[in-house]
Computed example of a mutant assay.
Amino acid sequence: MSIGDARNVDLSTCDREPIHIPGSIQPHGVLFALEEETMSVLQVSENVADFFGSKAADVLGRSIGELLSGSRERDLRAALPKLVAAEPILLMSFEHGGGELNVVGHRSDGVIVVELEPADPIATEGIPHDLHSIVAAFIAKVQGVPTVPELGKLVATEVRQVTGFDRVLVYRFDEDGTGIVVAEDRNEAFPSLQDHRFPASDVPKQARELYRLNRLRIIPNAGYRPSTIVPTANPVTGRPLDLSFSTLRSVSPIHVEYLKNMGTEASMSVSVLLEGQLWGLISCHHATPREVPFEARAACDLLAQVFSLQIASRARAADVERRVELKSSLTRLLAHMAEADDFTSGLLAYPGDLLEFAHAAGVAIVKEDTCHLIGRTPTVEEVRALA
């Protein structure tokens, strides 16, 4: 699908778009799919010429060591044992073309996926260098924060400090897939979206699943032209290369059009997972193209993980508190019923305890021909119809 096609797309088809196999990458970096034993190039992005001066057709079948110096190939081989299937890892960095390239890798579809992307300090101006101290300070700050919205505001502020984005939103998914902005930090480049709700179609099902699997996605320039991966099919599987865990994965043209409609030229999303499920996103927007180096993205991922742990901790504490309250209410209600001539009289004499136990605004007690109402309830006739 082209960017032009996205303008007139039927949004009901979004759930069926195969976004994990786009067949292309964002061109701020270059991708290689390697055979592990020989390090030969099985697939490569067409923009390899922009980085190494060799056309894709001339690179295929050759060892990646022919593009890198001998010492760099040895360093890359030495780093391969660190690779896992479902986690992009920074393997090494090296000077190239007057700048520095980060080498990020993961395993996918029986091959080693190696992605090179800029770590140029000019491209990342304004991003703090002491990321460890920022994360450490955040961990200390969250200990005394009582509510999730306040935690969200804190993590939004920290992520914005790390990345330099114009606006950072903390976005929570409800059970029906709709979302609400529970916190934000921003400058005047973008309007506030605090407490705004968004339909489930804004983040289709397969996109939410990809966010669950791969916690971080970056789009440095929404106006990019995708760089095609050649050949189209992974020689190992005969299918397009699965880019679920790629840092350079080209994104849906529908999403690119969505960003442009928002006046956003760069974005980043960090997933917030709770017990393995997608709770929400930390969504970042910038009015102009902006690169964020791997190290800063990893720091934001760590901030998101600390945030999710704090959410879980508060949820567990609230659950324990609720259980204690229920047990206390039940004990009082049992005592009231034991003291009364019949259980109905005991419950009616202490309506506050009954409402607290039921965690409701109203209660109806129906016994034989009698119907007693407490708090906000339907009419007696309506209750009898329900009973």
Rank of each mutant, 00 (worst) to 15 (best):
K205E: 07
P146M: 04
G223V: 14
V162E: 12
D176C: 11
V236A: 07
R160S: 10
A189V: 15
A140S: 14
E188K: 07
K141D: 10
N234F: 00
A207I: 11
D176P: 11
V170Y: 04
R208C: 01
P191M: 14
V148Q: 03
V181L: 04
R239I: 00
R217A: 04
R208Q: 04
Q161E: 12
R212N: 03
E209W: 13
N214Q: 07
G144H: 06
H196K: 15
Q206H: 10
V145N: 12
I139L: 13
F198M: 13
I229P: 12
S227E: 15
T228V: 15
A156H: 01
G144E: 07
L154V: 08
R215W: 09
A189I: 14
T178G: 05
R167S: 06
E150G: 03
N214K: 03
V148C: 00
T157M: 14
E175W: 13
Q194I: 13
N221Y: 14
V162P: 09
L210C: 10
S227W: 15
L213G: 04
P240S: 07
E150P: 09
G238F: 12
D185Y: 03
Q206R: 09
V148S: 08
T178R: 02
P149K: 00
P149E: 00
G144T: 04
P149H: 02
G152F: 11
I218W: 02
E175P: 14
A233D: 13
T232F: 08
P235E: 10
P191R: 12
I218Y: 05
V168S: 00
E188L: 11
E209S: 11
I229D: 13
T163Q: 11
F173D: 02
F190G: 02
G238V: 10
A233I: 11
Y211V: 01
T147D: 05
F165S: 05
F198S: 14
